[in-house]
Write a protein that binds this DNA or RNA. Structure first.
Lengths: 239, 239
DNA sequence: CGGGCGATTGAAATCCCTCAAGCTCTGTGG
DNA sequence: CCACAGAGCTTGAGGGATTTCAATCGCCCG
C-alpha cells in the first residue's frame, strides 16, 4: 500500500521515485491508536512529527471555561504536526477522532530532507501552506457564513479531500464526528448544530446517519456553501 | 535601516550575516502604496512575493453577498503572500490598511534560496507557520470567544507583535483600522463592534481614538482575552 | 436489563443583527 | 473664517438567531 502523503503530494506536483523513497524511509515507526486519544498535547515539545496513515484526527484548543475549538480535521496523508518541526512547542493538541494508524517521522530526518532535498522540502512546506489555506477558509466560515452554510462548506471540503484519496464511494463517505465535535468545529452550540444539520437533511441535500455521510445533491450543497475548491490547490504544477 | 523581516526572524533564531545579505539582496524593488489599495488580488498568479516594510495590510475574502472576512493583519516584517511562491494561485486578496512601503521578491529568488540555503529556507517556512498559528488563534476567537474577548485578544496580539518591532511606545501604538474593518476581522456587525469596543473602553482597559490605541491595563486586558502568547513562538532557538 | 453516549426536542432568555438616524471630526471651497 | 460634504463613529429600537437549561429518546454493549 502506498504512502497516502505521497498520494496527496502527487496531486500537486510530480514526485520522483527517489523522493518517494526518501519519504517512505523517513518513517521510523508505525503505530495504531484507539479513538479519542491525544496524539500530541498542548505544550509538548515533540522530537518527531506524526503522519496520519489512516483514520481521522483533529487539532483543538481547550479554553479555561471548558469550551473547546477544533481548528482542523485531518485525514490520511495529513502530517498532523509537521509544524512542530520548526515551531518546536505545540500551541494546541491533536486527538484521534477514530482509531488511527500513524507514522512517526523524526525531526532530525526532516532536517536532513531540508538540507539535501530542496524540491521535497518545498512540497512539505506546501502541505503546511494548504493547512493554512484551510484555516483561512474556516475563518471565513466562522466569521461570515450561516450555520447551515458552515456545515455545507465543511462537508464540501471533506468530500473533495476524501475523494482525492479514493475514500468517497458514490457520494458516500465515513465521517466519525459526533455532533458535539461538529459544534466545536463550527463554533456552535450542540443544540444549534443539531438543528442546522436537520435543516440540511430536511432539504434532501445530505444524509448523515451514524458516521456515514451521503451527499445527495452535490450541486445544491456547493451552492448553499458557496463552495469554491481553489483554496485546496488541487493542481499538478511544478513547485 | 535594517530589514524588518531580519528583525522578526532574529527573534526566533540566529541569522548569519550571509543569510541577512541573501535576504536583503533578494529584494528587487521597493515601492510605496497609498492606503486602501490591493497589493494582490484573489485569483492572481504572482511571480513575486511581497514583503511589508512599513504600514499595515490585511488578507481578506469577499463573499457573494457583499460580506467580507479579514483573515489576517500584517505589519512590517511580514511576507504578506510568501505562500503564493508555492501555492501559485491567490485564494484571497491582500490590501493596504494604511500607506505602505513594500519590497518585491521574485519567486525565482525564493526558489534559489530553497536550493542553496536550507537554514534560511526553514526560517522562511517558519514565518508561514507562524501565520498559520495566528490563523488558528483567530479561529478560537471567532468560534469560542465573546465579542469583547475577541477585541481584547486581537489587541494583545498586535501589542506583542508591534512591540517586537519597537512600534509600541509606553503602551501606545498606531492601529489604522476602522470599526468596519475591525468587524470584518472579528466576524461582527459594525454596530456590535462599536458597542463591544465601548465596553472595553468603559472599563478603562484601553483607549482607542482615531488610529491610536493605548493599553491602559495590560494585566486586565490579557485576563479578559485569556491571552497566552505561546502561539507567536517568540523564542530564540536553533530551527 | 441497565447504563451510557449521542441525538433530539421544547421553552425561555440572551445575544447580535438589521434598519435608520444622528453625531463628530476633518478637510475643502467659497 | 465659515459652511458643507464625507467618512467614520455612535445611538435607539425591534426582531430574528443562538444559546442555555432541562428533559427525553434511541441504540449499542456488557
Amino acid at each position: 500500500m502506498t504512502n497516502p502523503l505521497v498520494l496527496k503530494l502527487s496531486r500537486r506536483d510530480r514526485i520522483s521515485p527517489e523522493e518517494e523513497r526518501v519519504l517512505t524511509s523517513a518513517i521510523t515507526q508505525v503505530r495504531e491508536l484507539p479513538a479519542d486519544q491525544d496524539i500530541v498535547s498542548e505544550g509538548d515539545r515533540p522530537t518527531n512529527s506524526i503522519l496520519l496513515l489512516d483514520g481521522f484526527a483533529a487539532r483543538y484548543r481547550d479554553l479555561a471555561d471548558g469550551r473547546r475549538q477544533i481548528t482542523s480535521i485531518h485525514i490520511a496523508g495529513d502530517f498532523v504536526d509537521l509544524h512542530s518541526f520548526l515551531l518546536k512547542t505545540m500551541d494546541h493538541g491533536v486527538f484521534t477522532m477514530s482509531p488511527c494508524r500513524i507514522a512517526v517521522v523524526p525531526h532530525e530526518t526532516l532536517r536532513e530532507i531540508t538540507e539535501k532535498h530542496p524540491h521535497l522540502t518545498r512540497l512539505l512546506w506546501l502541505s503546511t501552506l494548504i493547512d493554512a489555506a484551510i484555516h483561512r477558509e474556516w475563518l471565513v466560515s466562522l466569521g461570515r457564513r450561516s450555520p447551515v452554510a458552515r456545515i455545507a462548506h465543511l462537508i464540501c471540503e471533506l468530500f473533495v479531500r476524501l475523494k482525492e484519496l479514493g475514500q468517497v464511494e458514490s457520494g458516500v463517505f465515513s465521517l466519525p464526528v459526533t455532533q458535539v465535535e461538529l459544534g466545536d468545529v463550527l463554533g456552535l452550540s450542540t443544540v444549534h448544530t443539531n438543528r442546522s444539520l436537520q435543516q440540511l437533511r430536511g432539504e434532501n441535500v445530505i444524509t448523515w446517519r451514524g458516521n456515514i455521510v451521503e451527499v445527495e445533491d452535490w450541486e445544491r450543497l456547493q451552492q448553499i456553501a458557496q463552495f469554491d475548491p481553489t483554496y485546496l490547490h488541487l493542481t499538478v504544477t511544478p513547485r
